[in-house]
Simulated assay, not measured.
Amino acid sequence: MPSGIAVEKKKLKNPPLQLHYLGDRVLRQNTKRIAKVDDETRQLIREMLQTMYSNDGIGLAAPQVGVHKQLIVVDVEPDNPANPPLILINPTIKKFSKEICQAQEGCLSIPGVYMDVTRPQVVEVSYKDENGRPRTIKAGDLLGRCIQHEMDHLNGVVFVDRVDNSLALAQELSKHGFSQQAVKPVV
């Protein structure tokens, strides 16, 4: 179901929201469910989309802009104006595929760092859309990976926490000015 929230897919010189970066406590806090989807929520969605497009992202979670709510926006085709973004409010993964795959990930909160992460190939996710209607999506490939990556943010997990090669990770983080101490490996 296409999003009813219209935002032009373009870079703004001054995006409405400020990104938080690895090492900032705000990225490690758990989020709260959104009780009521209202105009305030839809305005936050618009601003998150504008901020995501302005920073060349394909996904953004509310904690990355300092908001402790279970809200993510995803657009794996930011260059395609005909492809609407996906808005997921209070998302829950219902099923993971047994098949796993490894692929490179990056994050707007850790600019310049790209590392391989292993995740389930396909996920089934239930969520509410921007009108508060319950939805379910089965997603694989880049979309499935992006949804899982953004959902991690809702639980205070950043993709570098899932990187297996700690030596390569330490080198990449150091090269881009981030501290290895900011990583909290997922066990």
Rank of each mutant, 00 (worst) to 15 (best):
T51L: 01
I58L: 07
A6F: 15
V158H: 14
S166L: 15
L86T: 07
D79F: 13
K98W: 08
H149K: 02
P134Q: 08
D164G: 08
Y114F: 04
K94V: 11
D141W: 06
H20P: 12
N165R: 11
L19W: 05
R42A: 02
Q29N: 03
A6L: 14
L88S: 08
R25A: 15
L143H: 04
N30D: 15
G106N: 11
D24V: 03
K11S: 15
C107I: 03
N30V: 13
K13N: 11
P134T: 10
V183I: 08
D75V: 04
M1F: 13
A6E: 15
K36W: 14
I58W: 03
L88E: 00
L154M: 09
G66F: 00
T41S: 03
L143R: 08
H153F: 05
R145K: 06
V76Y: 01
D129I: 07
K184L: 04
Y21H: 14
V160K: 02
P78S: 01
L88V: 11
S126G: 10
I137H: 02
D39G: 12
N80P: 01
L17K: 03
Q70D: 01
P16W: 00
A103W: 15
E172R: 02
L12S: 02
V183E: 05
L17R: 04
M52V: 13
L143I: 01
V158E: 09
D38I: 07
N165K: 07
R28F: 06
V26L: 09
Q121N: 15
K138P: 09
E150W: 04
A61F: 05
K95V: 02
G140K: 01
L22Y: 06
V183C: 11
N90R: 13
T92F: 00
R162N: 04
E99N: 06
E172T: 00
R46N: 02
L60P: 14
V183T: 13
C101W: 15
E130H: 03
V113M: 02
G57I: 11
T51W: 09
V163P: 00
G132W: 09
V65K: 07
N155A: 03
H176M: 06
L49D: 07
L167V: 15
C146Q: 02
I5F: 02
M115R: 07
I58H: 06
V26M: 10
E47D: 15
V186C: 14
D129F: 08
H20D: 12
V73H: 00
L49A: 09
L108V: 12
R133F: 06
Y21E: 09
A6R: 14
K94Q: 07
R25P: 14
A35K: 02
N165D: 13
V186Q: 14
R25K: 14
V73A: 08
Q18A: 14
V160H: 02
G132V: 08
L169Y: 09
A182E: 11
P111E: 14
R145N: 01
G112F: 10
I147G: 01
T118E: 07
